[in-house]
């Protein structure tokens, strides 16, 4: 636990999270959601939860984003909010 880094990353997490929800394009949201996962992964590492971080890294980056992109590919990128 290194609290300054922790705090910094927490801030980033919130920003990216809001960003992912605000973007008016689903592909962009998917990509930013990937970034959100990265941040979360860092956060877990900072808190000493290595296994959780590992899982988040592999799932968030490797799988979730790809699923999102796949789904967006099969549907539509359009969003009103």
């Amino acid at each position: 636990m290194i609290w300054p880094i922790d705090l910094a990353i927490l801030t980033l997490v919130v920003i990216v999270g809001i960003g992912a929800l605000m973007v008016k394009d689903l592909l962009g949201a998917a990509i930013l959601f990937g970034a959100y996962s990265f941040m979360m992964c860092l956060l877990w590492t900072v808190m000493g939860a290595v296994d959780v971080a590992f899982t988040e890294a592999s799932v968030g980056a490797g799988v979730s984003t790809v699923f999102f992109v796949g789904a967006v590919f099969r549907t539509s990128r359009r969003t009103k909010d």
């Binding site: 290595v50 296994d51 971080a53 590992f54 899982t55 592999s58 799932v59 490797g62 799988v63 790809v66």
Partner: peptide, 16 residues
């Protein structure tokens, strides 16, 4: 760190 789940996801990712 790691284990079945993480390894499995990485393997899956390789095929993806």
């Amino acid at each position: 760190p790691g284990g079945g789940f993480q390894g499995g996801v990485i393997l899956g990712a390789s095929i993806i």
